[in-house]
């Protein structure tokens, strides 16, 4: 068989699977989002109602706007904290030596944990009666001794953010260590010879050469923050009330607790829009790589 046909046959099965398992559901949920369909009342899809589901979410549903707000706050803080802390740890671990290489290896451990398990672990750590972190914070900040973190609307969100940052920082650190290794040593030596101190060198020599890697990390983390579900579900299940309910959790509740397929699909689609923008930004980094035929 000649290459001109073979090359398409090679990619066809995989592309078909991607189309069937991801693009089809995306299209199908777009159609569902235009229908009224409560699965609890009818096994068959209801009538087309145009954009009513979307308008309902945007105009009539305080819970939707709450989920947008929670997701925004969560994404902002997790992206910021993860990026800054990971950058600091990467700088700390960048030089070689046995201790640093050992710690680098251990960084893989939190990241290989199921996010659901991370959520459970943090609920254990903040158990009001015997949680280790609960006890720790009660000791260093005595006014917090009586506070039940996971029952407090704002503090519960703080715990969710902490758990997520804990889970993601090791991985982003590894990304940054890779980025730091790609910064040519001569540029740093030259800065030192010119009399620049550690911070000045980092700020004006290293950081500018890291913009691409930081960009990739920020977008990637933002995407994963926006769709956070597992950790939230296991840690707080959106509560207390709806104070830690992210958009993904809100879709889950509407789809699989209230069985409102039409409405859940419309909110899911509202989630896809910011994701599409971020994905488009991300492709610019992926395709910016030189040397691809």
């Amino acid at each position: 068989m000649d290459d001109r046909r073979l090359k398409y046959l090679l990619v066809l099965p995989a592309v078909t699977v991607v189309l069937a398992t991801a693009v089809w559901p995306l299209g199908y949920s777009a159609l569902l989002s235009l229908r009224s369909w409560k699965l609890s009342r009818s096994a068959e899809p209801g009538p087309f109602i145009g954009l009513e589901n979307y308008l309902w979410a945007l105009q009539e549903e305080p819970d939707f706007l709450n989920a947008v707000w929670v997701t925004t706050v969560f994404t902002f803080w997790t992206v910021l904290l993860t990026t800054v802390i990971a950058l600091a740890i990467a700088v700390l671990l960048a030089p070689g030596g046995r201790l640093r290489l050992t710690v680098r290896t251990l960084l893989i451990l939190p990241f290989a944990m199921s996010p659901a398990l991370i959520g459970v672990s943090w609920r254990f750590m903040f158990n009001p009666d015997f949680g280790l972190f609960q006890a720790f914070f009660a000791t260093i900040i005595p006014p917090l001794a009586e506070v039940q973190w996971l029952s407090h609307p704002q503090l519960a969100l703080v715990v969710v953010i902490m758990a997520d940052v804990w889970g993601w920082t090791p991985f982003i650190t590894l990304v940054f260590i890779g980025g730091l290794a790609a910064v040519p040593g001569e540029t740093i030596e030259a800065a030192h010879l010119d009399g620049a101190g550690g911070w000045t060198t980092f700020r004006h020599v290293v950081l500018p050469q890291m913009t691409n890697v930081i960009g990739v990390a920020v977008i990637l983390k933002a995407i994963f923050s926006l769709k956070t579900f597992d950790t939230v579900y296991m840690l707080t299940n959106g509560g207390p009330g709806t104070s830690t309910q992210t958009l993904a959790h809100y879709v889950y509740v509407n789809g699989f607790k209230y069985y409102d397929m039409g409405y859940a699909s419309s909110v899911a689609w509202l989630m896809v829009l910011p994701m599409a923008v971020l994905t488009w930004l991300y492709t610019r980094f992926v395709f910016a790589r030189p040397g691809r035929a």
């Binding site: 991801a22 559901p25 995306l26 199908y28 949920s29 769709k227 993904a248 879709v251 859940a264 994701m275």
Partner: peptide
């Protein structure tokens, strides 16, 4: 990068 919750509804 799609939210898993979008994919799972139709399935």
């Amino acid at each position: 990068f799609l939210p898993a919750v979008v994919i799972v509804l139709p399935f």
